[in-house]
Design a protein around this nucleic acid. Sequence first.
DNA 1: CCCATGTGAGACATTGATGTCTCATACTGG
DNA 2: CCAGTATGAGACATCAATGTCTCACATGGG
Lengths: 192, 192
Amino acid sequence: MSHMGYGCLMAVDRDHVLRSAAALLTRKSTATMDEVAKAAGISRATLHRHFAGRDALVRALEALGIAECEAAVDAARLDEGAASDAVRRMVREIEPAAGLLAFLYTENQLFEGEEQHEGWSRIDGRIAALFRRGQDSGEFRIDLTPAWLTEALFGLLASGAWVVQSGKVAPNDFHHMIVELLLGGALRREES
Amino acid sequence: MSHMGYGCLMAVDRDHVLRSAAALLTRKSTATMDEVAKAAGISRATLHRHFAGRDALVRALEALGIAECEAAVDAARLDEGAASDAVRRMVREIEPAAGLLAFLYTENQLFEGEEQHEGWSRIDGRIAALFRRGQDSGEFRIDLTPAWLTEALFGLLASGAWVVQSGKVAPNDFHHMIVELLLGGALRREES
DNA sequence: CCCATGTGAGACATTGATGTCTCATACTGG
DNA sequence: CCAGTATGAGACATCAATGTCTCACATGGG
């Protein structure tokens, strides 16, 4: 059926375009629609048929980022085992999306007055709940609020993505850098 | 003398415009030149007489940020006393400029191909040297590189500025949040 | 074979920000 | 009072990105 074929093809292409745009905008956040189209291997006309304008593209990327974040949070099983292990699993799962996250992180600074997507609130809530669980179990310190720890996590993910992209640190160190700084800090531990 | 008066007045006004622009762009990084002018209480023509274009304005803001950072680093006396105390002093000194830093932090993501200002390299180097000193003295752990700790510090400063601006945490908690997370991490300490 | 549909290429107008210019006005020092 | 100067207001051109449209081509199914 033409309708079936149409829908499937569009979906596949749309996803491919979205991935290409994410990869490009992660590196150059001011890329033109022409550049985005070229990066995806399609013409600007076709790009505009998929996403009616740059705004729609960014919104779609935001939705993709939210979906990947939520999937990562699901896969990390935040309510199982030690809270610190859950944090490690989460960073591990979210690492492939760190570049996209970094792009959306700065892009969100533009959405000044507008309310942010509901999906972010949900993800923020789930991660904050994990930090709160760690505090209740005595694993995490209580003088750093869950809200701040959540924000700091996203900030460190963005910083990590950029510092890896700039070549200052090896991609393999990404997970260790983020997790160890977030959980353990820079000070040397006496124990262990 | 007209020349004297001219120079002095320009300098004062220029600094005032720069501060206003920094305050506005910290909140709305995409503000128009008209908005910047209005925020400074001058006309767009006069703004353009001080800074020939948005690019020049951003460069001037970058120079201001570098100057304030360097002054903060100087005032913090990074090579005196315990490294962790030096970090605390530095964050304390740099806190007033955190908003401007956050703006420049995202703005630098646009300068893709271009080489960054030499001033940043100097500041990065001085801060990285502090972390290295802390490692050499056994105060800091050695598995987190000074380069990463430096980048993470700037990332946390930007995150802290935004989270305070959004009202999610109190401004008074800024210093404690940044320093304690950077130095101690989220895990509870057994000692002390 | 023929038609439908997606696509690429390009022309064209629009829009928003910006750079530039002129002119009238207010102030300041001599 | 007068000259010099900075300023504000606004007009105007420019420029880049974008939205929109048309047309030709290819491909795939009936």
